[in-house]
């Protein structure tokens, strides 16, 4: 994946699916993905969005009640 994408970690696969749906409703394309990096969580889920939309995506997800871990990184 290009470094132009950001991976937003969420608390569960259910929240990942919810995140994708919320973003889609707001015309932001995203992909549900298992977290690729090893981390302190072990298995984790994320949604991947275009870097330029990160701020807007985080706002939408926060207001939409998606529980995020707070980790966001490049993919």
């Amino acid at each position: 994946m290009s470094k132009m994408n950001k991976c937003i970690l969420v608390r569960s696969v259910t929240y990942a699916q919810k995140a994708r749906r919320l973003l889609e409703q707001n015309n932001i394309k995203s992909t549900v993905c298992k977290q690729l990096r090893a981390s302190r969580y072990g298995c984790a889920w994320c949604v991947i969005v275009d870097e330029s939309l990160q701020g807007r995506a985080l706002d939408i997800l926060g207001r939409g009640g998606v529980m995020m871990t707070g980790d966001v990184y490049y993919v």
Binding site: R11, S12, V13, T14, Y41, G42, C43, A44, W45
Partner: peptide, 16 residues
């Protein structure tokens, strides 16, 4: 539950 596999504790997030 498919998440936080490194934790011995059950993750508290519903529904998982």
């Amino acid at each position: 539950t498919g998440t936080e596999s490194l934790s011995a504790l059950q993750p508290p997030t519903l529904p998982e």
